[in-house]
Design a protein around this nucleic acid. Structure first.
Ligand SMILES: NC(=O)c1ccc[n+]([C@@H]2O[C@H](COP(=O)([O-])OP(=O)(O)OC[C@H]3O[C@@H](n4cnc5c(N)ncnc54)[C@H](O)[C@@H]3O)[C@@H](O)[C@H]2O)c1
Ligand SMILES: NC(=O)c1ccc[n+]([C@@H]2O[C@H](COP(=O)([O-])OP(=O)(O)OC[C@H]3O[C@@H](n4cnc5c(N)ncnc54)[C@H](O)[C@@H]3O)[C@@H](O)[C@H]2O)c1
Lengths: 212, 212
DNA sequence: TTGGGAATGTGAATTTTTTAACAATTCTTC
DNA sequence: GAAGAATTGTTAAAAAATTCACATTCCCAA
């Protein structure tokens, strides 16, 4: 089918598919049907087939999907069949947790630069990486070919961090700070806010528990 | 209007509204129109009015919304006008970052218990809280009236952590580990996976940059 | 080689979500 | 206190996403 616009929800589900498929692979399953994958992901099986159809035909009729092939195909479809160089701005509690998280490089997002403006932090080594002064951002973005910026500064500093990153020629920004920021339209911007999961939990526990 | 089913997307947007409204409040803005709020949140203004209509009538026609009142109303609608006692299982990199994050208690999610199975970690004090052995979970859940469980263990331990929490009588679970888990249907389960934001960024930078 | 079983890919139907449009309400000014 | 401007709440329309249903394809066994 190969389509233009891909729903955001599809991207999020593809992430789940990869996760579950990797588990299948680890268990030694070679082939999986959309039905079985759907069950493991708690979605409808045509949802899966439709999601995949946006990008191409990856299955074999009458058979199913070859697990390893499908993982590879989804990764290629998303553009994560190669490494992405990332720079992290704001090495506090959260920034440190991310820097130490092995899964980033395993998934192809390599954090190559860590920046902070606190003179006490500059020079410190975290997970084999030296924390660098934010003022060096422009130079480092070019030197290290950074493409994605991760903002983990306090919210009131997020816009400034974004400005630095944009000025330095970054292509996309993932903002973990709870503040809206503005960037030129050619920069891809994503907000990470997991509090809404807590809100949803609170809401459902309190109000929706007797329903359905 | 007051409705039954609330879309997940609405909950996520309400979180954004609260965030932006709080900023307006800090700036001293008392009244805001759906138009202005919409712009700050990058959504459509009828979207906002529709989202709010699920819960009641909070505005004044011809005037707009009183910022403080609206914050209060949204919080009450979501059930976060009171504190929620949370327990965190798995005090590693991420768990620590969450424990140290002040925003949790400010938003009404009080982490009252921290659990780990690593004997080297048990007894350690993090952010004024003693790390307790996971085996004490059932006792502590009751003692501290914990309602929401936060799982930050490695993925292969997430199911076990969930089992403990469910057995102990928790009402909802937020799972930060990248693994699907199963819980009884009366337990509210949320998955937190921010990698899909990275995937979306990679995808758009790579394939969608020339479009639109 | 053919037929039966299985499971994909996709157009059509359905459901859900978003956007538009506007009547109803409020405030302000004259 | 009436007219005009502003902005909500809500109904209707449009768009988007999900699910259904089935023709198509593939594998395997006889
Ligand atoms: N800690 C969490 O679990 C958590 C969870 C969700 C969201 N967040 C958000 O992530 C952000 C970081 O949280 P945290 O707990 O790590 O805070 P933190 O205060 O521990 O860390 C912030 C870091 O940013 C640095 N910084 C400030 N201004 C900067 C600038 N202009 N350039 C570069 N570095 C700068 C500070 O020196 C500090 O090291 C916050 O916005 C927070 O709301 C944190
Ligand atoms: N660090 C990050 O930035 C990050 C980001 C996204 C997701 N995650 C996920 O969050 C989880 C935790 O990540 P982390 O980096 O903190 O890992 P970590 O290894 O630093 O911490 C895991 C902790 O869980 C404890 N643990 C293991 N089994 C347990 C059990 N049965 N009961 C109680 N405690 C147990 C361990 O002792 C350890 O302290 C992982 O699943 C990871 O994939 C982490």
């Amino acid at each position: 089918m190969k389509s233009e616009h891909i729903p955001k929800a599809t991207i999020a589900r593809l992430a789940t598919y990869i996760q579950v498929l990797s588990e299948f692979k680890r268990e030694g399953t070679d082939v999986v049907s959309s039905e079985r994958l759907a069950e493991a992901c708690s979605v409808n099986s045509s949802q899966i087939r439709k999601d995949l159809a946006y990008f191409g035909e990856f299955g074999v009729r009458g058979v199913g999907y070859y697990v390893q092939d499908l993982i590879t195909s989804i990764k290629r479809s998303l553009g994560i069949d190669r490494a992405w160089n990332c720079g992290l701005v704001g090495v506090g509690n959260l920034g440190r947790a991310l820097l130490r998280h092995r899964e980033f490089s395993r998934k192809g997002f390599i954090i190559r630069g860590a920046f902070d403006c606190d003179p006490y932090k500059i020079g410190e080594i975290v997970e084999g990486m030296e924390i660098v002064c934010s003022r060096q951002l422009p130079a480092k973005v070019k030197e290290l070919s950074l493409e994605i910026g991760i903002i983990t500064t306090p919210p009131e500093r997020a816009q400034r961090a974004a400005n630095y990153l944009v000025g330095a020629g970054i292509k996309g920004i993932i903002n973990f700070a709870p503040s809206r920021i503005s960037v030129p339209s050619h920069i891809h911007l994503e907000y990470v806010d997991f509090f809404h999961h807590f809100y949803a939990a609170a809401f459902h526990i309190r109000f929706a528990e007797h329903q359905e």
